[in-house]
Design a binder for these strands. Structure first.
Lengths: 201, 201
DNA sequence: TGGCAAACGGAACGCTGTTCCGTATCGTTC
DNA sequence: GAACGATACGGAACAGCGTTCCGTTTGCCA
């Protein structure tokens, strides 16, 4: 853990030049392999694209999850950080929540196989799981809590559950007769609590 | 008449006794392997449980989907046939739809890995896909159409889409913090169209 | 320039699904 | 009941995957 250099680099003696070069090359290769074959692209393919041996991949990214996280880190961060902004700018918390979920869905839907990987119980994806939850659950929870506090949605759904449900609905997006976005829209609509009798005070 | 063979058996010259015995043994073995390791249980495991060679499995069930369909056929049929009954017995079409979906979810949730397999784009599962859709889409469509005709739900969702969405939400059921049944409940709630001029928006 | 730690490459291993063919068994016919 | 052809069986063999491991190369610093 915490051995990401290029930043503080305090006690870490800085990696060798070829190692840093290879890491960058691998990220590019992985990104293009993911686009071409999904996030399950064979390790050998990625290695070949990068012009390195498979051992080099495992040295830099011990599990596939590490590689996926590294490739998509920026986008996940952006999604997480969009939460507070949306909450501040939207007319209602529920609108902010819906917009934020749209961001998340747009991200997932364009990454072939990522939604599947996110729900996989394969041990290789544990880190992926952990990272996504770590970054996105708090963001989602903030929006969810705000909407619940405003009485707009039923209060018994956790951010974890909602993210997982949305992620699940994104599996198979891109197939002809299945519109993941609409399904998520319906799920979010189902969250609403219609004020009748016991309304927000 | 006097059709000893349980199959249609018209031009088919009836299989050898050992073949029929092995097929039954394999179904049992597969069923128990599926319970123990999910529907992805290794072919060799199933063969070992049945006490046969792997070749025998492939002769009887050319693809994994064929085996899965054979194991769960009865339950899928029961689910499909429950549709009209529920529609006749329930107070509203939407109630019938909700109950029917509950049946489907109960079925899926208790089959380790089945929901995942159903959404897999792996060619080996194409038959599985086809069978489930063939049996369940019409049943679902009947309920969906009735509810739509009654104005209870939004009319722009297809049975295919709904089934797929529900199936997706069942992925990962059984994990500690994710309640697939509740997510499906929310999705079904989101289907409702509230008769008061301005729907949820 | 010498030396060594870091990094590399890819052969090798284990676990999958899948195919293939020599062998065994069944059912029929004489 | 013996013989024979068709059917079915078993498991070795192959291919594709992830993962490990170690002999070799390379960058860095003294």
């Amino acid at each position: 853990m915490a051995d990401i250099d290029s930043e503080s680099g305090r006690s870490t003696p800085r990696k060798r030049a070829d190692a840093r070069r290879n890491e960058a090359t691998l990220l590019d290769a992985a990104a293009s392999a993911f686009v071409a074959s999904g996030v399950d692209a064979p390790v050998r393919d990625i290695a070949a694209r990068a012009g390195v041996g498979v051992g080099t991949i495992y040295r830099h990214f011990p599990t596939r999850a590490d590689l996926i996280v590294a490739v998509y880190r920026h986008q996940v961060e952006a999604c997480a950080e969009a939460g507070p902004t949306l909450l501040a700018d939207s007319s209602t918390p529920h609108a902010a929540l819906a917009q934020w979920i749209n961001l998340f869905v747009d991200f997932l839907v364009t990454k072939h196989g990522l939604a599947e990987a996110l729900q996989s119980d394969n041990a290789a994806f544990e880190t992926l799981h952990a990272y996504f939850l770590d970054r996105l659950v708090p963001a989602c929870a903030q929006l969810l809590d705000a909407a619940a506090a405003a009485g707009e949605i039923r209060p018994d759904v956790t951010a974890f559950e909602l993210l997982r449900g949305v992620g699940n609905l994104c599996i198979g997006a891109g197939e002809p007769r299945y519109d993941a976005r609409r399904m998520v829209e319906i799920l979010v609509a189902g969250l609403r609590q219609h004020p009748q009798g016991t309304g927000p005070r």
